[in-house]
Lab assay of single mutants.
Amino acid sequence: LRQRHVACLARSERGLGFSIAGGKGSTPYRAGDAGIFVSRIAEGGAAHRAGTLQVGDRVLSINGVDVTEARHDHAVSLLTAASPTIALLLEREAGGP
């Protein structure tokens, strides 16, 4: 079961505080899956403080732009754009009992 949710992050002077992996033109985060995933969350960064991202979340869109088939460098450029806030649509595998 997959759950979707939106995370809104305000960029700090240190950026957004998370890294992505995967996407076309880069090493897959999961074998056989060209999706883009949250690969790291920086301690004390914007994403960590927001508490809405988890490592392993699939990134579906960035500020309304679909990145499900995107190249890695395109997703990075969307994240590093000048916008002071970033809205992410994420998909998470629902774990637990």
Results as ranks from 00 to 15, higher is better:
Leu1Trp: 04
Leu1Gln: 09
Arg2Pro: 04
Arg2Asp: 05
Arg4Met: 08
His5Ile: 15
His5Lys: 09
Val6Leu: 12
Ala7Val: 15
Ala7His: 05
Ala7Pro: 01
Cys8Phe: 14
Cys8Ser: 10
Leu9Lys: 02
Ala10Pro: 09
Ala10Leu: 11
Ser12Asn: 15
Arg14Thr: 13
Arg14Ser: 09
Arg14Glu: 14
Arg14Cys: 09
Gly15Glu: 08
Gly15Gln: 06
Gly15Ile: 03
Leu16Pro: 11
Leu16Gly: 04
Phe18Ile: 09
Phe18Arg: 00
Ser19Tyr: 04
Ile20Gln: 02
Ile20Cys: 00
Ala21Phe: 05
Ala21His: 06
Ala21Trp: 04
Gly22Leu: 01
Gly22Ala: 01
Gly23Trp: 02
Lys24His: 09
Ser26Asp: 11
Ser26Lys: 07
Tyr29Glu: 07
Arg30Tyr: 09
Arg30Ser: 08
Arg30Met: 12
Arg30Gln: 14
Ala31Leu: 14
Gly32Glu: 12
Gly32Trp: 05
Gly32Leu: 05
Asp33Val: 10
Asp33Ala: 13
Ala34Asn: 15
Ala34Trp: 15
Gly35Cys: 05
Gly35Val: 00
Phe37Cys: 00
Phe37Asn: 00
Val38His: 03
Val38Leu: 04
Val38Gly: 03
Val38Trp: 02
Val38Gln: 02
Val38Lys: 00
Ser39Val: 04
Ser39Ala: 12
Ser39Ile: 03
Arg40Thr: 14
Arg40Glu: 15
Ile41Asn: 03
Ala42Cys: 10
Glu43Val: 11
Glu43Ala: 09
Gly44Gln: 09
Gly44Arg: 06
Gly45Trp: 04
Ala46Lys: 07
His48Thr: 11
His48Ile: 10
His48Ala: 13
His48Glu: 15
Arg49Asn: 12
Gly51Thr: 06
Gly51Gln: 10
Thr52Val: 10
Thr52Trp: 08
Thr52Asp: 12
Leu53Ser: 00
Val55Gln: 05
Val55Pro: 06
Asp57Val: 00
Asp57Glu: 01
Asp57Cys: 03
Asp57Pro: 00
Val59Asn: 00
Val59Trp: 01
Ile62Ala: 02
Asn63Lys: 00
Asn63Arg: 01
Asn63Val: 04
Asn63Pro: 01
Gly64Trp: 02
Gly64His: 05
Val65Pro: 00
Asp66Trp: 05
Asp66Arg: 05
Thr68Gln: 10
Thr68Phe: 04
Glu69Phe: 07
Ala70Pro: 03
His72Pro: 05
Asp73Lys: 08
Asp73Phe: 05
Asp73Met: 06
Asp73Leu: 05
His74Tyr: 15
Ala75Leu: 00
Ala75Pro: 02
Ala75Asn: 00
Val76Cys: 10
Ser77Lys: 14
Ser77Met: 11
Leu78Met: 11
Leu78Glu: 04
Leu79Gln: 02
Thr80Cys: 11
Thr80Arg: 13
Thr80Tyr: 12
Thr80Asn: 15
Thr80Asp: 14
Ala81Asn: 14
Pro84Trp: 03
Thr85Met: 10
Ile86Gln: 03
Ile86Pro: 02
Leu90Gly: 01
Leu90Thr: 05
Leu90Trp: 01
Arg92Ser: 05
Arg92Asn: 03
Glu93Cys: 08
Gly95Phe: 13
Gly95Ile: 11
Gly96Asn: 14
Gly96Lys: 12
Pro97Leu: 11
Pro97Gly: 14
Pro97Met: 11
Pro97His: 12
